[in-house]
Design a protein around this nucleic acid. Structure first.
Lengths: 129, 129
DNA sequence: TCACGAACGTTATATCATTACGTCCTTAAT
DNA sequence: ATTAAGGACGTAATGATATAACGTTCGTGA
């Protein structure tokens, strides 16, 4: 069920995200796809939603922006390390700690359906200076 | 340094957040403060920024909304359990796992300055049905 | 009392996201 | 082949969130 054929718009959006090391906003994507005939934000948002449902794209909440997902288990929780200097976003999987987090909230009866973990700071390159 | 006297607008905003179990957007706050004389979004945003710097308020990135912070160490990382049914947001501190997360990203040289952890799901009450 | 910085209020505008509506294309049953 | 249904599309309008620019007022300390 994870492998549906993508529509043209979905493929265009995914390709642009995959080409970028930084997260792109919907309007960034729209600008980069004008030459392909896209005109309106909703076209991008529709593609992003479909891609998100297939686990191919993640939304970075703290940036109102999106990244291509580097193909872990789509249902695994993902964390994102975001360099506030150069914009580079690197995704990392969540092995041990995810359950720890869930149970932390779960102890009070909370049922976790979606978790967002975002680290902001400086990537290795930008931290050097 | 954590205890600065609050301005009138800051106190008004903080009070409204403290009264609410759900996160409130800046515009929610503005609506609730019209009677107090507030007119423009920027007034609310300015108060929110100042309160955030003092660790009295947190932004919930995935909701574009804000909550009063329940007085842990302001520099400790906080996680938020957000009930998508009733909107209740409960904050929890991050004991062990924070360092684990930081080092996960840190292993690749990432220097973490801010981390956001948001759990979406159902609170105990809403999970029962 | 006056100089300075912080906070303020007002207006305008930028940025992010969705609703509404009608059309076209695919697909599968007939 | 025909057609009904659903999905994706394009266009237009609007809603929701956030900031910029500007001049004024307020509080504090010299």
């Amino acid at each position: 069920m994870t492998a549906r054929k993508l529509t043209r718009n979905q493929q265009l959006v995914l390709d642009r995200l995959a080409d970028s090391s930084a997260a792109l906003t919907a309007y960034d994507l729209l600008d980069r796809l004008r030459d392909e005939g896209l005109r309106a934000p909703v076209q991008v948002y529709r593609a992003l939603e479909a891609l998100g449902q297939q686990g191919l794209v993640h939304r970075i909440e703290s940036l109102n922006a999106f990244v291509a997902c580097c193909g872990h288990d789509p249902h695994a929780a993902a964390g994102f390390a975001i360099c506030d200097n150069c914009g580079e976003v690197t995704e990392f999987a969540f092995p041990a700690s995810e359950e720890g987090l869930k149970s932390l909230a779960g102890a009070k009866g909370f049922e976790t359906r979606r978790m967002t973990v975002e680290l902001h700071g400086r990537c290795a390159t930008c931290a050097e200076r």
